[in-house]
Design a protein around this nucleic acid. Structure first.
Lengths: 225, 225
DNA sequence: CCTTTCACTATTGTATACAATTATACAAGA
DNA sequence: TCTTGTATAATTGTATACAATAGTGAAAGG
């Protein structure tokens, strides 16, 4: 399970986890073609390690749904279709609506402080228009909410889904004014958390997700023509 | 990824996957204590195989959230608290409500036929009061709906969550009349699928899940005293 | 008597060797 | 020419050997 530190996520020690991160990034950045086979030995030679950690990473990728493993044949990259991404938005919309309500019930001072910190950093980098950092902080902002649920299932499920959506659709939103509206939406979410209004929080976060979904949809609709 | 055939789910060939199934069942049946360490060599000796497939299975368990892996120390079983189970019901309620609507949109004749088949078998074994088979068919019934969404994410997420809930709470419901009400609820769900009424389908399946959740909650509430 | 250090053991992490399975190529026959 | 069978090569699955790290306990010093 990759753990995200403030800006870069570094998996704990083992080689297998490092390889997982590398391969996942490659897949999400579409460096491999859809359906391409990932040869264990070739990867091992390329990365100058043995097959064992490669196999670990591939197993992990398989369970995350990024590759498909056919017994005695090999693993093949799957990639994401626009519909996959849209489905993930639907999942996020439903689960985050629940998660934020749970979070409000169960969170302690530390969680709240962390969300506030992250939000302030977002404001800072939004002013600077630093797209990279904003994107990382956006992931962190939502993950902090997931953590506050203190439910391993909400946290685990949402973390992965949100991470995939973020990475795959991070180039979909081109309007510069989105930075501004996004920070306003995150502020509204934070406000509703602080006041403890669970219904409002749910509505606010779902609205935020829908907004993003709409923009990503528009991107893919335009791309087709 | 374990694939369920009609009654028993058998993972494809590799030893690692077989071991995964064995260890998962042991954890879900509480044959290991919470926090107990799983020693690789001990398991390898017990099961008369090498450490390699054991490690594969453990990695898989880790990603499913059933064990926790501490680098260079080992993996420890996590188990489920009543709150974990309740959280999973919440997740199911939200996601299955969406999934059944997607399923209605995207399903083809084969999916529909399969659901009908499974339902008829459920009726058959309900008449016979064969608790074991009913439980398996219940899992299959819901999984078939997940499949019909033709969305790997809905399918993957819901399959695991539902399986865990089913296994961990399968002894929670003791009233014999639950068999009857359950089959009625499943019939209502099927009917709404057939007529293609998405809103009704959502309401019906969520009502079904809530009903089960309430019974499981009652079980744990009684257990405490 | 308690604490610290250091050596030893046990266990996990990685590499490599071997077995089993699958893909490929080429030849023989229809 | 197309199919089919077989041998060979390539690749995955499993076992084992080795390396690195963490745990344990006894001896030395305070």
């Amino acid at each position: 399970m990759p753990s995200h530190s403030l800006f870069e996520h570094v998996s704990h020690g083992s080689l297998g986890n490092k390889i997982f991160d590398i391969l996942r990034d490659r897949i999400l950045n579409e460096e491999y073609e859809h359906g391409q086979k990932l040869n264990e030995l070739a990867l091992a030679n390329e990365l100058k390690i043995s097959r064992t950690p490669i196999r670990e990473a591939l197993k992990q990728l398989e369970l995350e749904g990024l590759v498909e493993s056919i017994p005695n044949k090999g693993v093949y990259v799957k990639g994401f279709s626009p519909r996959d991404i849209d489905d993930m938005f639907e999942i996020r919309c439903a689960l985050e609506g629940l998660a934020i309500q749970l979070a409000i019930d169960r969170m302690d001072e530390e969680h709240l402080a962390k969300i506030k910190d992250v939000f302030e950093l977002m404001e800072f980098y939004t002013a600077k228009k630093d797209q990279e950092k904003i994107n990382d902080l956006n992931i962190l902002y939502h993950e902090t909410i997931y953590q506050a649920t203190q439910s391993q299932y909400f946290e685990q499920l949402l973390k992965d889904v949100h991470y995939y959506v973020s990475v795959t659709s991070r180039h979909s939103i081109t309007q510069p004014e989105r930075l501004e509206t996004a920070i306003q939406e995150h502020r509204a979410i934070l406000d509703s958390i602080v006041t403890g209004d669970k219904e409002l929080a749910k509505k606010t976060i779902q609205k935020h997700i829908r907004k993003t979904q709409t923009l990503v949809r528009a991107y893919y609709a335009n791309k087709k023509k």
